[in-house]
Simulated assay, not measured.
Amino acid sequence: MTKHEIEIAPDSALLVIDVQQGFDDASFWGPRNNPAAEDNISALMDAWHAAGRPVVQVRHASLSPGSVLAADHPGHAFKDFVEKRRYESLMITKHVNSAFYGTPDLASWLTARGIGQVVVTGIQTNMCVETTARMAGNLGYDVLVPLDATHTFDLAGPAGLSLTADELATATAVNLQGGGFARVVTTAQLLSASGPRLTA
């Protein structure tokens, strides 16, 4: 295998981060990018399920007043396409950006199963996806991030600075791969490299 080829481990875990209905509220979040994100996440979830690989679904329960992701808000619910693909997935609830600071404990679950590779998808690219991928890299996992199976929103920063969602996604790609945290790939690359089905 060359450094440009992708090998998917038989027990590679697909992390589906915060694909929740609250992110459909454009009045709360503003303009988003990558309208293909949901279709790509669906395709990866189907491929992982068909191969018998583990899927982990993560849901954010915001503690911020008025958040559309608060546990008592309708937006806390998974988007329909994720909800109908729950299967036997591990379900994690978190209150911060990293899925490694949730309940139940993701690292303990991965360690107990000897899983060394994670594929990180979901919302938002530059927030919970990037934070989870960075922490996974720090913890020694082989991390793959299909950027086209994520999306984010335009964001304002200090002193009048702002970046579009596409600019933020590009920065995430550079941060993750340039910084050695993860390999940034595409959904098509993962699907073509998904390898053989697991057998009982």
Score class of each variant (00 low, 15 high):
25 D>R: 10
195 G>M: 01
8 I>D: 00
68 V>E: 03
8 I>E: 00
119 V>R: 07
107 A>I: 02
41 I>C: 07
52 G>T: 03
113 R>P: 00
128 C>E: 06
6 I>Y: 00
107 A>E: 06
108 S>P: 00
91 M>V: 07
160 G>M: 13
76 H>P: 07
47 A>N: 02
85 R>E: 10
102 G>K: 03
77 A>V: 12
103 T>C: 02
65 P>D: 15
63 L>W: 06
151 H>V: 02
118 V>H: 04
60 H>W: 12
93 T>Y: 10
134 R>E: 08
53 R>L: 03
72 D>E: 15
150 T>R: 09
7 E>K: 15
166 D>Q: 13
147 L>F: 11
124 Q>D: 10
56 V>H: 01
97 N>F: 09
56 V>C: 04
6 I>T: 12
188 A>I: 00
63 L>D: 14
191 L>K: 13
106 L>Y: 02
109 W>F: 10
200 A>V: 12
111 T>D: 15
174 V>S: 02
172 T>Y: 01
137 G>H: 01
84 K>C: 11
179 G>F: 10
108 S>I: 04
161 L>F: 08
156 A>N: 14
63 L>N: 11
65 P>S: 09
192 S>V: 12
162 S>V: 04
70 A>T: 10
78 F>S: 09
37 A>V: 05
70 A>V: 13
73 H>L: 01
90 L>G: 07
66 G>E: 09
43 A>S: 15
35 P>N: 12
95 H>S: 13
7 E>R: 12
23 F>K: 06
13 A>V: 04
52 G>I: 12
49 H>A: 11
136 A>Q: 05
13 A>W: 04
95 H>I: 15
28 F>I: 00
53 R>Q: 02
56 V>Y: 03
71 A>E: 15
61 A>G: 13
63 L>R: 12
199 T>Q: 10
97 N>T: 14
3 K>F: 12
34 N>L: 02
171 A>G: 08
138 N>D: 13
107 A>N: 13
74 P>Q: 11
73 H>T: 14
102 G>V: 07
120 V>K: 04
25 D>P: 04
54 P>E: 10
40 N>Q: 03
131 T>C: 14
128 C>M: 11
197 R>T: 13
10 P>K: 03
118 V>P: 05
159 A>Y: 14
200 A>Y: 05
23 F>N: 04
81 F>R: 00
148 D>V: 02
181 F>L: 07
24 D>W: 00
